[in-house]
Amino acid sequence: MSLLIAFVASMLVGCGTWLLLQRRLSRIIIGVGLLGHGANLLLLVSGGRRGTAPLIGVGDAADFADPLPQALALTAIVITFGVTTFLLALGFRAWQISNDDVVEDDVEDRYIARRAQIDREVADEIEAERAQAAEEDRR
């Protein structure tokens, strides 16, 4: 049983990772969801074997399932739910602004790169002028 769950968890994490690497936020959100499910399943498996319902049930103490991972998984699910909602809102906003939900490159990075290029061009020009001047001097 837990082998099956472990297998499912690994599938979920694998698919989630692949989706995370996409450029579109809608796919990333699904990826994050799958990744979260995988992690929560893993949390559930970490409690060990199956057993009867803890805390409310009556029975031998050795038969109970471990309640803590279940509580943890529940909390983690709630948090994932909330944050996924926020991501959806963000995607909606991105779509509102640009009609698209592609995660774009950092604008400032490109600006810096452009400045570097301009610097290089200027340096090249100066270099060329100097070379020309030296040429004329020699003549």
Partner: peptide
Amino acid sequence: AFGDDLAVDDEYGTMGVGDAL
């Protein structure tokens, strides 16, 4: 937050940058 805007989009079609702002 999101229920209304979809209706707006039905009316105007898709919104451009300026429209959204």
